[in-house]
Amino acid sequence: MEQSVVSVDVVALRFWSDDPGLTLGVAARAHPPFEGELALPGVLLARGERLALAARRAVHTKLGVPEAAIGAVGQLVTFDEPARDPRGPTLSIAMWAVVGPHEPNATRWVSFDEVPPLAFDHTRIVGAARGHLSRLLWKDLPFTRALTGEEFPATRAVELSTALHGARPDPANLNRTLATIPGLERTAERRRTKATGRPAAVWAFAEV
């Protein structure tokens, strides 16, 4: 029986303070198959390599992101379609990573609603990842904190929820959700944001 290999494909997320919304990174493939086509950053898992390290390697080598700018990393879902790779059976483990500010490069950053056609089954991976990530938001602290930073105005929380759920949340319900997150508190500060132009409440994680 022909044995499969394992690839690690990463949904690398960007949500910098000056960004208008949440985006994910794609880049043109440098080698066959699908040379020149856009794809998620991915690598074959090396013998003895941990998934998180492989995900970081993929983001660094395929998107050109400095290793120091790659924040939290986590696992999403596995794709086992035997024909997903024309080179032969390949098991894909989809991961997420949050990327911090760094110098611009050739990486293309796109929203979940504007993802172009991608090589392999990467379009399907992005679609599945969005659902998983929407369930992690506000529940998985490492993921949430990596995206929001240690403090953020309420309008940024709205932008995050909208990007991952595909619909704008009810502000009152979102505030109630934020109030249940361990270590997250609503401060007395209000900050004007580009999104609305009006001062918004600021939430902050307590120091650990």
Rank of each mutant, 00 (worst) to 15 (best):
L63W: 03
R29N: 01
R198T: 08
N175T: 12
P86M: 04
L40F: 10
W138P: 00
L38Q: 06
R190V: 11
P171T: 00
G36W: 01
A167L: 11
V5H: 12
P101V: 10
S161I: 02
G25R: 01
H165L: 14
A200R: 05
A12T: 07
I125W: 11
F34T: 01
D140Q: 15
A163R: 14
P89C: 04
A97E: 07
S92R: 10
N173A: 15
P66W: 09
H122Q: 11
L141M: 10
F205Q: 00
R87D: 11
L51T: 04
R156F: 02
R50C: 05
R176S: 11
V10I: 13
A172I: 14
T123S: 14
L160Q: 04
A39D: 15
E189S: 10
A163P: 02
G88R: 06
M1E: 11
A172L: 13
T162W: 11
D121W: 10
P153G: 10
R56V: 06
E150M: 15
T196V: 02
A55G: 08
R124T: 15
V99P: 07
T78M: 12
T180N: 15
P33F: 11
A188L: 06
A119I: 06
R168T: 12
P33A: 05
F205E: 07
P199L: 01
D85M: 00
L45A: 05
N173V: 15
S4C: 11
E49H: 00
P66G: 10
V110H: 02
V8A: 03
T177V: 13
P66A: 13
G197P: 04
A69G: 09
R124W: 14
T78H: 13
E114Y: 03
R50M: 15
E2H: 12
K194E: 13
L160N: 04
D85S: 09
L13R: 08
W16E: 14
E150Q: 14
A28R: 13
D140Y: 09
A27I: 09
R108K: 14
V5K: 09
G127N: 14
K194T: 15
R108G: 00
F112P: 04
M95D: 07
P41I: 06
A201H: 04
T123A: 03
V110D: 01
P89Y: 08
D113M: 04
G74F: 09
G100P: 11
L174H: 04
W203I: 00
T187W: 01
K194C: 10
V202K: 02
S111V: 07
N173M: 11
A146L: 09
R84G: 08
V126H: 03
A28P: 06
L184V: 12
A206K: 14
F152E: 12
E67P: 05
L53I: 12
V99N: 04
I70N: 10
V99A: 06
D121L: 13
F79L: 13
A157I: 03
F15R: 10
T144C: 06
E114Q: 07
G197A: 00
G127K: 02
R87I: 06
L174N: 04
R57S: 08
F15D: 01
V202F: 00
W203S: 04
P32Y: 07
T144L: 10
V202Q: 07
D121Y: 14
R124H: 12
L178D: 02
P101C: 13
F112N: 03
T123L: 02
A157L: 08
